[in-house]
Design a binder for these strands. Sequence first.
DNA 1: ACATATATTCTAGCGATGCTAGATTGTCAA
DNA 2: TTGACAATCTAGCATCGCTAGAATATATGT
Lengths: 191, 191
Amino acid sequence: MGISERKTREREERERRIVLAARTIAEREGWASVTIRRLADEIEFSQPVLYSHFQNRDEIVGAVALEGFGELAAVLRVAIQPSSTPKQLVEDVATAYLDFAFARPAMYEAMFVLPTGLRFARSDTPAQLREGFGAMATVIAPFSKDVDTATETFWAALHGLAQLERHGRIRPAFRAHRITLIMQMVSGQSR
Amino acid sequence: MGISERKTREREERERRIVLAARTIAEREGWASVTIRRLADEIEFSQPVLYSHFQNRDEIVGAVALEGFGELAAVLRVAIQPSSTPKQLVEDVATAYLDFAFARPAMYEAMFVLPTGLRFARSDTPAQLREGFGAMATVIAPFSKDVDTATETFWAALHGLAQLERHGRIRPAFRAHRITLIMQMVSGQSR
DNA sequence: ACATATATTCTAGCGATGCTAGATTGTCAA
DNA sequence: TTGACAATCTAGCATCGCTAGAATATATGT
């Protein structure tokens, strides 16, 4: 009775193709070009089929964002080299975070700006959403008693840097300076 | 020959009414409800009239955002009390900034998230866009040699806190803790 | 094997949106 | 009064997210 198995397999494959198409179009042309009609064309099914996979367009964005959180977490973990000093680790993670944000603006937008319907801080929150935070907490821990709050603040600083620079509010040429400043701030060193 | 004066006066008045309507609707129902048709209804003119004032919808959002920058600057200036200590000033400005962001989410969204077509860091950049930054620089200056970069970083941290909390990514209950952390970080005090 | 029931998928369309071309109206100077 | 010009409106285009209901394919029962 492998028929129903094949069907669910095909369904999952189709869903992956939807998410991949959304991601590809977003990265190439921006999220405004990710329309239901366009995605339907891409997977060669009619539009209503998409609504049997996702409740609405926001959920598709959310599916892409979820992949993004997994990849961000991986990037941050790679940045954490055991041989580095605690201060160096903070700087490396900060740099890796911003590199990710600027290298994949559409993905970052899906993760942090667009409505996605993703649930944070809940019992059913997917692991990907916690892992990135965990990586940041790892490098913050040596410098703080209240690790969670300190990590939240660190994260917020990085997110703010990414957003303000992307919108042309702060000077791109001074990105490294600002990272240094954050690193020094976190590590508790004056000036 | 006061006729043409009257006409330009009426035009300006009409433009103010458009911006006010956009702002009011956005604050009450969100930016998605700010449609050209709705605004046209509000000012009792047909839709094309709006396009004789603004090139497109984004420019209307931008006009509201511009007001917001003026008001944010005013709020920050009020928070700067000469009698306070430098450290207290940093905390007060940070608190005032976040209070503004949470009290007027739609306005803040127009200023920092939505596309507006506003030009920053240019010769023709309106004064409002610089004043808020100036107020933040005032309280950061005592703690930094490179004031501009330090202010950018401070600003980014505040913006990140506002955005992450608004999207439910960090714990609202710990907002004050995070502000304290930032204040301590900026003032160069360990832990 | 055939009829019936059940999924699955599609066609067609609704109610919006931002924006605009072209007709219409109002306002001046000659 | 007429003719030019500016201001404004009517009507509509293309596109969007989303969905009801028809059509088709698949599974089940006899």
